[in-house]
Each structure stands twice: as structure tokens, then as C-alpha cells.
Write a protein that binds this DNA or RNA. Structure first.
Lengths: 110, 110
DNA sequence: GCCACGGTTTCTACATAGTAGAATAAACTC
DNA sequence: GAGTTTATTCTACTATGTAGAAACCGTGGC
């Protein structure tokens, strides 16, 4: 969380997925969201490993979903993006933004 | 270079530095550029390691500068961003862009 | 020639992040 | 309780990121 603690590329993507999914963010959904949005194939192991590392840093928290799942299957483990995570994400985005500032169109706008 | 080969965060930053510096891109300058732009401290080892890995992937090429340095110091080794590198950079940026698309302002614009 | 100096690159060593896929778990239905 | 479905954990490994000391190679002065 300290200033200067930057996120990896995939960590950023995962955090953005949490941001998008809000209260419905759990492992499988995060994976699906990323795959659908980016077209990039993602292994489930990659998602959980990343989510857990982010939790270790305090950027996200997790809690067990209701054990009463209507239609079979194991209970979900939901993840929530914490404020420190939002900050880390913003800082990381910012670094790239600064590096792109002023570049000729095609780069600058992204 | 194959589709699906994504860049790490720092790799992206380094490539952006090359883009900015153009023909004047050599190790120390890349470092300086990143530090000045982002405010983030960067070790010289990190820069060269990254540059060399990028070269290994064919994303950048390097060549020795003129041995006739006017004011002392070892000759420079210049780096050039190749088209494959530009493409990889664009693809990586794109993934993030897609993940941010439609997020409420403050996120969406970055 | 030798030495100190300054800008630059290389080397060494380790920490953190990314990846895949098999194994396991926990709920449901019959 | 066997089979099916949805989900998470585990294991093993590769790739990226990071720091700082060491080595290089020009210069200029003595």
C-alpha cells in the first residue's frame, strides 16, 4: 500500500474486473468477465493466485457466499475491492498515463 | 510476438520511454525519462534487464553508439522500438482499455 | 604512462507476478 | 449414494521486476 507499490498488468486487469462486477465478483465470474471483455484466455488458477496476492496486500477482501445455492455447485467466495486497491490501481494507471502524455494521436488517447 | 503475448507493466513503461526518446534512447536516458515523467524511482539494472528481455522477443533492437564520445564516458548502446514492439504495446494497452470501457468517470477517461 | 573521474553498461542474486491444469470440495437431483 | 454441476485449492513452474556492485572505456591532468 505504500507509495511506490505498483501493480502488475494482470493484477490491474483483475482489479478492474472487480470494479465492473461489484457485489457479484467471485473467481469464476472474474475469469469470465476478463475473457469476454478482452478476448484473452485466462486460466482459473491465474485468477485465484492473483486475487489471493491482492488480498495479502489488503487491496481486496473476501468472504464466503450464502451456502444456500439454489441450483447445485459449491458456495461462492466473493471478493471486494477495497479503497487501498482502488488507490493502487489509480496510481498504476497514472504512471502509464504520464508516460503516454503528449504522444501523437493513436497513443495519446488510449 | 504471437497473439496473446502480453507485456508486463514495466515493459510497457520502458517501451513508452523508447517511443518518447526516439533516436536518443539508450539505457541511462530511458531511466531518466521514466523517473522524471512518473516520479517513480527506477534502478538501472531494472531498465537493462527489461530492455534485454524485450530485445530477446524482437520488440526492440540495439546498436552501439559512436565510439567518439566528446566528453568521456563509455560509448552508448542505443535501443530502437521495432514494429512488433509497437504492436505488443498497443495490444496490451488495448486489453486495459477494454476493461475500463464504460466505467464511470474517473476511471473511464484514464 | 598512470591516475582519477565521469558516464555507461554488465553482472549477480533474489523477490514478485503470471500461468496452466489437475485435484478437490460442496452443493444439488434422482 | 452415484452422478452432475459449479466452484475453489493445490502444485509446479516460467516470466517479470528490482537493486546495487562491478566492470568498461572514454577523457584530462600531471
Amino acid at each position: 500500500m505504500a507509495k511506490g507499490d505498483y501493480l502488475g498488468e494482470f493484477e490491474q486487469i483483475v482489479l478492474l474486473a472487480l470494479l465492473r462486477l461489484g457485489p457479484n465478483a467471485y473467481g469464476m465470474a472474474v475469469r469470465r468477465e476478463i475473457e469476454e471483455r478482452t478476448g484473452r484466455r485466462v486460466s482459473i488458477g491465474a485468477v485465484y493466485a492473483t486475487l489471493e496476492r491482492l488480498e495479502g496486500k489488503g487491496y481486496v477482501t473476501s468472504f464466503a457466499g450464502e451456502p444456500t445455492a439454489e441450483r447445485g455447485g459449491r458456495a461462492k467466495r466473493f471478493f471486494r475491492l477495497e479503497s487501498g486497491g482502488q488507490r493502487a490501481l489509480r496510481d498504476s494507471r497514472e504512471a502509464i498515463r504520464k508516460m503516454m502524455a503528449g504522444l501523437k494521436t493513436g497513443w495519446g488517447t488510449i
